[in-house]
Amino acid sequence: MSAVLQAVLQFPGAHSALKPAGPQARIAEGLWNSMYATAIVVFLLVMAALLWAAFRRRRAEEPAPDPARERRMRRVVAAAVGITTIVLFTFLVSDISAGRAVTATPGKDAIQIIVTGHQWWWEVQYRDSVPQRWVTTANEIHVPVGRQVAVELRSTDVIHSFWPPNLTGKRDLIPGNENSLWFQADSAGVYRAECAEYCGHEHAKMALLVVAQSPDSFARWLTQQRDTAHTPADSLTSRGQEVFLSSACAMCHSIAGTPAGSRVGPDLTHLAGRATIAAGTLPNTRGNLAGWIVDPQRIKPGARMPPNQLDPADLRALLAYLETLR
């Protein structure tokens, strides 16, 4: 976990369209670079023409128009208009073809992930032909390097938008409608995605990590995520489980392997394995977890988790229990 976190901190380009890590982001970056370079050239030419016009020497009295000169000038203007049109059409064609390349249908062997937007967090589900092997997690997508990932996008409340700039462009999550996109990570790393459609109070604190790892470690991660939570081994953690199940937590959260099965809030079965809490708002440390549980409204005002009043000993036991949920 701390390795992931370090990667986030050490990887300042984790949220940048200019550091592409996948084929689609590379197409978008190529498009951007060509437009940027062309714009620089055009800017310099226009500025040069402007300066020439501003500073060219004038005679006190303009001579009568010279028909040959007028013709020459008309030709220059026509050529400029023609070049501009060609440049804009080239942009249009390259833009449309880049768009088509980015939205091409993914291959058959792409991994399928369902991402559901909630105000203000992300539910992530890996399906399988056997329902017992479905994996539900939150605010973190793990993917193997070099393989296509097809993401089905849904929403339960309002419109959100999924945007991992290092990997691909944006796509909206629309209630009552299924949208999709795919991406592929070419190098291992942690990339940040964010909600890119204003969705209410805590829109700004609705991020998601995409963790790209080697196929082997991805397979290991997925197998481990399929496990249900371990039965608490000692008295402190079993007290913690009791606190969780007997208080409000179980009304909103699920922990596989316990009676807690609500899907109002994020699934906590493997909470301790995640790098952040509250949709990328805080690093997942014991202190932050305690602060979040007692008063989430201080950290994320409006978030749909109420404050919790817990006896200090109960809180300690609860934290110890939550830390066992690897």
């Binding site: 005002p301 109420p306 404050p307 919790n308 009043q309």
Partner: peptide
């Protein structure tokens, strides 16, 4: 009027 933080919570 939106009040997000109310005590006591239970």
């Amino acid at each position: 009027d939106r009040r997000f933080r109310t005590w006591p919570p239970a």
